[in-house]
Computed example of a mutant assay.
Amino acid sequence: MFRIEALVDKDRRDLLRSRLRESNTAASPVLAALRGTPAEREAPLHIWALDPAGGLAGGLVGHTWTTWLHVAYLWVDAEHRGAGLGTRLLAEAERIAADRGCTASRLETWDFQAPEFYRGQGYEVVCVIPDYPPGITEFTLTKRLV
C-alpha cells in the first residue's frame, strides 16, 4: 500500500525532477544525443537593469535548456516603461542564449500583460489558453533566434 502526501518538500522535488530528466533522456534519442547531463544542459539566465541609484528598474529571469531559451519573467518598473528597457533586456537574453547555442526562445504571457510587445519583438503565438485563470487568456509565444 502506498501512502500519499501533499506537502512541499524541496528535496523530494529535486529528486523527482532528476529522475524525470533521466527517464526523459533515456527515452528520447534527441535528448540522449545532446552533450552533457540534463542538469548541465540547463543554465540560469538572469539580467538586471538598475537605475542610477542602484535600484531595480527591470529584469529578466529565465534559463537555457538544450537549444532553447525559456523566459520565465520579464518586468520593467512602471516609470521606465516605454523607453525601450524591456526590448534591451529581451535582446540581451536572446544574445546570451544564442552564445550558449540556443536556436529558439519561448515564453508565456497573459492578455493584460505584453503579448503585443512580444509580437513586436518577433515572437509568434503558438498556444492560446482562455480562462487561465478565469477571465484571463494566457499566450505561449516562440521565436527562432538568428
Score class of each variant (00 low, 15 high):
residue 128 V to W: 00
residue 127 C to F: 04
residue 111 D to G: 01
residue 128 V to F: 04
residue 93 A to L: 10
residue 114 A to D: 09
residue 123 Y to A: 11
residue 118 Y to D: 02
residue 128 V to K: 14
residue 100 R to V: 06
residue 119 R to C: 00
residue 115 P to G: 08
residue 122 G to Q: 09
residue 108 E to Y: 13
residue 116 E to D: 15
residue 107 L to A: 03
residue 123 Y to I: 11
residue 102 C to H: 04
residue 92 E to G: 08
residue 127 C to T: 11
residue 96 I to W: 08
residue 116 E to C: 02
residue 93 A to N: 11
residue 121 Q to N: 08
residue 131 D to W: 01
residue 95 R to D: 08
residue 122 G to Y: 11
residue 121 Q to T: 05
residue 99 D to I: 00
residue 92 E to M: 11
residue 103 T to G: 12
residue 114 A to P: 03
residue 119 R to P: 03
residue 96 I to L: 15
residue 117 F to G: 00
residue 94 E to C: 12
residue 114 A to M: 08
residue 108 E to S: 10
residue 114 A to R: 06
residue 116 E to Q: 13
residue 130 P to F: 07
residue 120 G to C: 03
residue 115 P to V: 10
residue 100 R to E: 04
residue 110 W to H: 09
residue 121 Q to M: 13
residue 94 E to K: 12
residue 104 A to K: 13
residue 101 G to P: 05
residue 127 C to N: 12
residue 93 A to G: 15
residue 104 A to Q: 14
residue 117 F to P: 02
residue 128 V to I: 14
residue 110 W to V: 00
residue 95 R to K: 15
residue 115 P to E: 09
residue 118 Y to S: 04
residue 126 V to T: 14
residue 108 E to I: 02
residue 118 Y to T: 01
residue 122 G to W: 10
residue 94 E to R: 12
residue 98 A to I: 00
residue 103 T to D: 08
residue 100 R to I: 00
residue 112 F to P: 01
residue 106 R to D: 07
residue 122 G to D: 08
residue 111 D to Y: 01
residue 93 A to H: 06
residue 116 E to R: 14
residue 106 R to E: 12
residue 131 D to L: 02
residue 123 Y to H: 11
residue 104 A to C: 09
residue 116 E to L: 12
residue 111 D to N: 14
residue 93 A to V: 07
residue 114 A to T: 05
residue 105 S to C: 14
residue 92 E to Q: 15
residue 118 Y to L: 03
residue 109 T to I: 03
residue 111 D to Q: 04
residue 115 P to W: 10
residue 108 E to V: 04
residue 127 C to Y: 05
residue 108 E to M: 07
residue 93 A to C: 11
residue 95 R to F: 06
residue 124 E to H: 08
residue 119 R to V: 02
residue 94 E to Y: 11
residue 104 A to I: 06
residue 101 G to Y: 07
residue 112 F to L: 03
residue 92 E to A: 15
residue 123 Y to D: 06
residue 121 Q to D: 02
residue 131 D to E: 13
residue 118 Y to G: 02
residue 93 A to Y: 05
residue 93 A to M: 11
residue 103 T to Q: 09
residue 124 E to N: 05
residue 119 R to G: 01
residue 92 E to V: 05
residue 99 D to M: 12
residue 114 A to L: 08
residue 123 Y to C: 08
residue 124 E to G: 10
residue 92 E to H: 04
residue 115 P to Q: 10
residue 125 V to G: 01
residue 127 C to S: 13
residue 92 E to C: 09
residue 119 R to I: 03
residue 107 L to F: 07
residue 95 R to S: 14
residue 93 A to I: 04
residue 97 A to T: 02
residue 104 A to M: 13
residue 110 W to N: 04
residue 99 D to A: 15
